[in-house]
């Protein structure tokens, strides 16, 4: 699980082009949207594609992302239970 969380952080930094941010800067339980990293709806769409491409998880409604992308913890939980690759 810890390895997956680290992996997710690295991927998020890469796909969202978060220069100057390291995985250590992102706490597992910190909110990704709103406060914290202050990500927005476009970032959410990027993360939806990340789930599809790297973990074989297809979301059809962008609203589903809201709960999944609350924090690294929630994201890792979702990936663990739903991944197809």
């Amino acid at each position: 699980m810890e390895a997956l969380k680290q992996e997710l952080k690295e991927k998020i930094i890469a796909v969202l082009n978060l220069e100057d941010i390291t995985p250590a800067d992102i706490a597992n339980d910190a909110p990704l949207f709103g406060e914290g990293l202050s990500l927005d709806s476009i970032d959410a769409l990027e993360l939806i594609v990340l789930l599809d491409k790297d973990y074989g998880i297809k979301l059809t409604d962008p609203k589903e992302g809201k709960a999944i992308f609350q924090s690294i913890d929630t994201m890792a939980d979702y990936v663990t239970t739903h991944r197809t690759k």
């Binding site: 969202l16 082009n17 978060l18 220069e19 100057d20 941010i21 990293l37 202050s38 476009i42």
Partner: peptide
Amino acid sequence: FSPIASRR
């Protein structure tokens, strides 16, 4: 601008 602001 900050790197976060210019990420896109």
